[in-house]
Write a protein that binds this DNA or RNA. Sequence first.
DNA 1: GCTTCACTTGAACGATCGTTCAAGCGACCC
DNA 2: GGGTCGCTTGAACGATCGTTCAAGTGAAGC
Lengths: 199, 199
Amino acid sequence: MAPSTTPDTRRRILLTAMELFAAKGYGSTSVSDILSRSQANSGSLYHFFPGKQDVLIGVLEMYRDGIQEMLLDPAWRGVEDPVERVFALLAAYRGMLLESECLYGCPIGSLALEIHEPDPPVRELLAQNFTNWTTAIQGCLNEAGLPGGVDRKGLAEFILTTMEGAVMQARTHREIGYFDRSIEQLRQHMALLTQRALA
Amino acid sequence: MAPSTTPDTRRRILLTAMELFAAKGYGSTSVSDILSRSQANSGSLYHFFPGKQDVLIGVLEMYRDGIQEMLLDPAWRGVEDPVERVFALLAAYRGMLLESECLYGCPIGSLALEIHEPDPPVRELLAQNFTNWTTAIQGCLNEAGLPGGVDRKGLAEFILTTMEGAVMQARTHREIGYFDRSIEQLRQHMALLTQRALA
DNA sequence: GCTTCACTTGAACGATCGTTCAAGCGACCC
DNA sequence: GGGTCGCTTGAACGATCGTTCAAGTGAAGC
């Protein structure tokens, strides 16, 4: 649609907001923060977005629509085994924690807990992001040779639960060990689930 | 007013702030919110607290010092079995979710993820709250007849991880089922850990 | 050349934020 | 009675918030 020469202000604003929301949260990021970091003027922002919340909606849509390219593809590059892919994704979050000295983990989880009374479209997008995540994991679990009795959807949700809880503790203690130990427990759990059928 | 009871403005401010921080978060709670709901004046608040952040510190200290009376004692009333106590505590969080139609879960977890760059005293208090929680759970696990090889500290942290992640998903989806399914996975995990030694 | 229109510019707005402070109150000690 | 002091009162402050808008730009269609 837009020629390559256009500055693509809308996208620049969204990418900046994505970065700032992840780093400082939604409430602590001011519109003028977004404007100065994205080199845009308030009039431009309000030309594309009715208000600040609609910038958040745009960011959550980017996460939702980009989960494959932005998250799964990089995490799963060179990893074929479906169970390994589960832990490769978790390792990607570990990497984000390490890069930021345990400051930033999962941007969706942070926003989900920060925004206490979200308007319906925001809540819905947060939920969609979680659902897409667990659906991707469920795909791995389906490929994996799990015993028949295992509840794949429940286990996929549990893996998200573990990631979010582990990120929260690692961030709070500023210590990656809290993340690692929870992941290790999850690994044990999945091993026991697999092994139970063999016994 | 009631002359027999001391006004105890400081405590009234803290209890109000505790309530508001849990309901709206720290950033979205204004000082004037606290003042009007606690029937205090700004001068009184700033007489007791250097600033808003010190109110948060006071609230986190209340949570830390009151974990036994406010959280564990009510949850464990009439429950003696140590493993049952673990799930009774989790059931207490389930109750908070239900009472609020899946809006409020764990106030510490919400604050931990909302406050992205906490000053050291705040971060330290959040970490202390988590540590006290896992230490209490570890006490249960020590009493329980777990096989010798089980990592009690790691498992206690994993139980907190599960609670926080499960609360996050239930809140985001506004559906208690997301909480329940993660707890069920945890129950399986603990059952498998116990049973493995018997096999 | 003129019009149209998507987009940009940036000053300005009212609201609300956290915070300050001079003044006042009242219980207790001298 | 006078003085001290912990606590209260509430108006006021400057800063910053999200948002508005009138004016301007420039490419495309006629």
